[in-house]
Each structure stands twice: as C-alpha cells, then as structure tokens.
Design a binder for these strands. Structure first.
Lengths: 257, 257
DNA sequence: TACTACATTTCGCCC
DNA sequence: GGGCGAAGTGTAGTA
C-alpha cells in the first residue's frame, strides 16, 4: 500500500493532495471531494472510450494520465502529442464510480451529447491541485493587432487609402477592412497573421465577388500577410487580386514597398 | 519539508516518482533524470512568458501546472480551459536550471523559433510518470469515412451517380469526389462531417468554377453534410450549387430524400 | 443559442 | 521540409 497524504492545512481545504498507489475507494473519495474546486491528476493503467460527434476507443490497457479541471475540462493524455488522446471540452460533468473494485470515470457533455468513459483497474497516483486563472490575458501579434495597425495607419497598405469600416458584415461573411482607394474604388482587405494559402485567397475572392456584384462595379481585393504560398499567389493573380507583404513581427509593422 | 519518494523498483527506472514540497535542487534533479522518458508534472507558484510566432506573458505569480512530455510537448495549464495557457508543441527541448534558488524551465522550439520560460519560486509538487502510446488509433465518423461511404454506394447521394475519382487533384485544391450524373454532367462532391458554413460553400464553388472553366461546360456541385447554416444555404443556392443532407451518425448513412 | 472566423491552432498526409 | 486541409478542432465575439 502506498502513501496516503492529505496535507493538513488547519482545517482549510488544502491546495494539494497526493495519493500514491491508493485503494480505489480512497481515490474515489478524493476525486469527489476535489473535482469541483481542484485540477485532478489521475495516473494508472486504464482503458477508455469516447462517443459523441465521433467515436473511438482505447482498448489496450496501458498507463495514461487523466486531467480533470473544475470547469469540466476532461483529458486523457498519453506519452506524446500536445492534444489529449481522448477528451471532453468544458463544460462537462465528471462522475466517478466503482464497479467490482475498478474505478470508473465518466465525463458527460450535454450539447452536443458526448461521453468519455475511463476504467482504471490500476491506480498509481491521484493528485488534486488548486490552480489559478490569469485575468486580462493578452497575446501580442494576432491578426487583430495587424488589422488595428492598418486601421490606425492605412498608408502602410497603400497611399491615400481610406478606411470605411472594420469587420464589415456581409451575407457571405465578415470583411476585415473595407476601404476606398485614391480613385474612389472600394477595396476589400483581408489580413492573415501568417503565410496565406489558397483558402485565404478564396476568402478574399468571395468578399470581392459579393461586393462587386452588390455594388455593380469593380472592387479591389488586397491580401495582407507576412507571406503567401506560390500556389496561392498564382490563384490570387488569376483573379486580379493583390498581395501586400506584412512584416512578420510582434511589432507588426509593414515592410517598405 | 515534504515527502521525497523515489519509488524503489529493484534498480530499474520506476514508472512513478512523486515529490511533495521538494527543495529546488531535488526538483531539478528529478526533472533532468526523467524528462526524456517520462511525463513530468510540476505544480507550484510560477510566472511564465512566451515568445515566438506571437508573444505573451503571465506576470502574476500564481499556482499553475506544467506538463512536459518526452517528445517535447510543453504546457502551462491553469484552472480552466482545455488548451494550455502557454505551450510549446513537439518537438521542443526542455532545459532546467536554478538561479538564486529559483527553478527555471526553458522550453525551446527550433522551427519556428519559440521559447517558453517558466520561473517557479515555490515548488509544491513534482511528479514523473511513464505513459504509453496507443498504436493503430482510429476515430470513426470522420470526413474520410463519409467519403468512403459515398464511394462505396454513390446512390446515397443520387441515383445513377458514377464515381470517377476520389481525391481528384486540381490546381485549386483536391476534390473529395468527382462523379458523373445520369445525364453525363460532371459532378463535384464536397463532404463535410459537420454543419457546413460559408467556407465550405466557397470551397465547392472554387472547384466547380475551376472545372467548368477547364472543361468548357457546366459542372454540378453538391455539398454533402449533416446540415448547413441558413446563410451558407442562401449563398449556395445563389450560385446554383446543391446541398444533400447526410445523416450525422457514426454509421454514416445518408438520410432518405 | 446559433453562427462566424481566428488560432502561437495541432495534426497528418502527400509531394 | 514545405504545402495543404481536416479536426470529436477549441475559443472568443457577436447577433
């Protein structure tokens, strides 16, 4: 039998519990005690199954790691890959039970209905840790930053470009930036934070086609990205669309012409 | 001081190590000892930063969970969400060091160059677990399964439909299924495993346009999916494209007309 | 709730 | 290694 360690915290709920080689009943108790407040780490030999939008099974009994978060996040991790092998995204609900001495975890998601079931005949470790959440989290260098830079200074795309609207809604989707050039032509600007592929060109083409049809006159389309694949570039030129290179940096300036 | 527990395994590398409230040096040793073979779990109060394709920082010191896998996967998890707050995908390399008694983790990815740095002034727990990898993993209900079902029985899309090719390569992308209808018209079939949006319609439109131009005659386009958004449907009809509902199930049959 | 598009997407396949 | 597109995508924003 392993170590059972409920850390004493003066009657308060501890931030950390760690059970090594616990009895299934011990594990079950700790999981139920902490599942709504702590992140649970469960290590052991397990099999698992998933059914919902799709379906899959992990039939081979082998050591895996289950991570459960209080918001309902449920993941079954293996030795490689960033993505869990099986999972349920939040919000989901975790149910724990014991059948014939075997611990079973059931994560249930309601919409869409998805169920992950994990049977753990051998429980090697159960941990419960209290984690924080960063507020006011910010990532720099997103597409949105690029759009902002252009809206604040349209000349980095083209001289005398006027911005008419940002996030311009159309029936075929949202246009990043709608502008007007020095000759009075409408200009659709589609921004990508990394290399543009055929899909990006197609997206721009869709907006331009729609708008030129609706307006009854030709509309320019400019794809702004740090780079573009050769296939995508041919495709773009074929439809008379334009490409403008954007410096790929966190300061998000545009390169000189 | 906490529990230090290197599990004795008769001289062999154990599958599980668990250190509660370890000294930084203890933690460092265990991490270096196991980082290339085990999945590491590191819990404590930490700050972190990321710089690479984008940039962000977790400046507030708070309890978080680091998970490191032997393939280089590196994740900083918080109390909610499925996705880690900060991460490096495999393959990356983990470096551990101590500066002024503070444990520092550095995960470095080479291409593209990305670095995640984690400073852990308070180490509450370090665990090392050996996990498996499922081989021959299979998910049922993918787009590929839907394409297969149609290729095996084209009549579920339309009577007397003949399949000419699957994954038909064109300059503008790969067509899921190319067929010919009872009247001899070419038919482009685009499959989606879940609700189709404007992007899916756009994709089909791109293929149909390309092919009809190349062949010099009209080409039909059919979007096969479990459902379609109302906007996307209007868009689809506007361009004379067709929609065929596919039953959203793991057996992947198509619903009757 | 539905819909849309981004993402440090990740991942797998094919060239 | 680059290009391309799917994914049980997850996630945020908006109507």
């Amino acid at each position: 039998m392993g170590i059972t360690r409920f850390i004493d915290n003066g009657g308060q709920t501890p931030d950390l519990d760690a059970l090594v080689d616990p009895a299934p009943m011990e594990a079950l108790k700790l999981i139920n005690l902490r599942k709504s407040t702590h992140v649970l780490l469960i290590y052991g030999d397990m099999v698992a199954s998933y059914e919902g939008r799709a379906k899959s099974q992990l039939e081979d009994l082998m050591p895996r790691l289950v991570i459960s978060k209080p918001d309902g996040t449920f993941m079954v991790h293996e030795s490689n890959k960033e993505k869990p092998r099986l999972w349920n995204p939040p919000p989901s609900t975790l149910y724990v039970s014991m059948n014939l001495g075997i611990l079973t975890l059931r994560s249930v998601r309601v919409n869409p209905r998805e169920v992950v079931i994990v049977d753990i005949p051998v429980i090697r470790f159960v941990g419960a840790v209290r984690l924080g959440v960063t507020s006011n989290y910010r990532v720099f260098g997103t597409e949105d930053d690029l759009v902002n830079a252009i809206v604040n200074n349209p000349s980095i795309v083209e001289d005398d470009l006027q911005v008419i609207a940002r996030e311009y809604h159309t029936i075929v989707g949202d246009i990043d930036i709608l502008g007007r050039d020095s000759r009075g032509n409408l200009v659709v600007i589609e921004c990508k934070r990394n290399q543009a592929g055929p899909e990006a060109v197609n997206q721009l083409k869709r907006y331009v086609e729609h708008l030129s049809q609706k307006e009854g006159r030709s509309v320019r389309g400019i794809l702004v990205a740090p780079s573009i694949s050769s296939t995508a570039y041919r495709y773009l030129r074929q439809y008379g669309l334009e490409f403008r290179r954007a410096q790929r940096s966190n300061s998000l300036g545009l390169s000189p012409p």
